[in-house]
Design a protein around this nucleic acid. Structure first.
Lengths: 193, 193
DNA sequence: TGTACATCAGTGAACGCGCGTTCACTGATGTAC
DNA sequence: TGTACATCAGTGAACGCGCGTTCACTGATGTAC
């Protein structure tokens, strides 16, 4: 119960951010500040030493979540043999693992509607995070020009996010996996053939 | 302030449902019962003569929203000349109108994550509504077998919903319309050529 | 058809609860000399 | 290097507020005879 060193503060800031990025993806952006802090063994009052408001945390957490997924997908692509990189991105994105773990995977599939309801002033920061997401994966997208590759990213990622979001509404494991197979089959054929 | 006739009650029930289906799509499922009732000139207490709980309203409102959109898309298809029906569905779905009016258009693009967080007991009803959405448009989907047409619906509708959800994060009209053109171009080429 | 009574749609106060945010306080850290 | 003081990370009580839900009440509707 006293002042912390600068590096301790930075570590706490990051812990709040990382945990919020998971909680919002898992349970939605209605998760309270009190709950996030409590999960970390902290009290709610201290939150405002780290973020100006909940909206401020939301934007940063959404941005971190997007960067996190971009990194995961990039790693999956880089691990794949040459020519199989886009295939790796698609099978990683449309996986049972992704379906079952919203808290560590794509924020677009869980939070896109919440993102679009944030105040416009703050949404600009989210747009940057989305552009960064795209930039990170652009090299793996098919297309002759950069414009084409951007278009491919838009259609492919938003399409797969929509598929994950829809499939998650269904409860039965069997139904979900059948739908996932259909979607994966389509995107592999349409984008990586 | 007294008992109403059976048909008055039914009318009120429907007014609540229809308005909720709009409000949830526009502002998210966190919109309160009090607000929905107040918008209709009613008080919050009467709500429970019509619905057992807010979750109960959520499921019914989501289902109505889905049925509403299925009908709009079906009408768009039926108005189109033979051979242009799928094209009509795609251009209607990926329109500036849809982008700008979440309250009257596809609930998947605005509420899919909220749907998947509903209690499993209640989610079954939503699954039926989604299946009904599919059935209604199945005849317009390309594919040799019904299985294929179901697969096409899954990929097409979830993909377009994901595109709308992503594009709505961006604030600038010009950016949005450019992205919308790219998505529309893709889906027309991939599904309706 | 009229009468007596049960039902219940809608009202508005009240319930407990959790939310985001503020603030006085603590005591260790950071800084100026 | 030591000292004196300002800073501030984190605590926990308190703020106003809105939420979902309950309930006693009202009076017109529905129903049994």
């Amino acid at each position: 119960m006293a002042r912390r060193t600068a590096s301790e503060k930075a570590a706490t800031h990051e812990r709040i951010l990382r945990h919020a990025a998971r909680s919002f993806r898992k349970e939605g952006s209605a998760v309270g500040i009190g709950e996030v802090m409590k999960d970390l063994g902290l009290t709610h009052g201290g939150f405002y030493r780290h973020f100006a408001s909940k909206d401020d945390l939301l934007v940063d957490a959404f941005s971190l979540a997007l960067a996190d997924v971009a990194e995961r997908l990039e790693k999956a692509a880089l691990k794949a043999p040459a020519g199989e990189q886009l295939r790796a991105i698609i099978t990683t994105y449309l996986s049972v693992e992704h379906l079952a773990h919203p808290e560590t995977w794509c924020a677009l599939a869980t939070l896109a509607p919440d993102m679009s309801r944030l105040p416009p002033s703050i949404r600009k920061r989210l747009e940057s995070a989305l552009v960064a997401y795209m930039e990170r994966l652009l090299a793996f997208m098919p297309g002759r020009t950069e414009q084409e590759r951007r278009g491919t990213f838009l259609v492919l990622i938003s399409g797969m996010a929509g598929a994950i979001a829809l499939i998650r509404v269904f409860a039965e494991r069997e139904t979900r996996e059948r739908m996932l197979d259909i979607a994966r089959g389509y995107y592999l054929k349409a984008f990586s053939a």
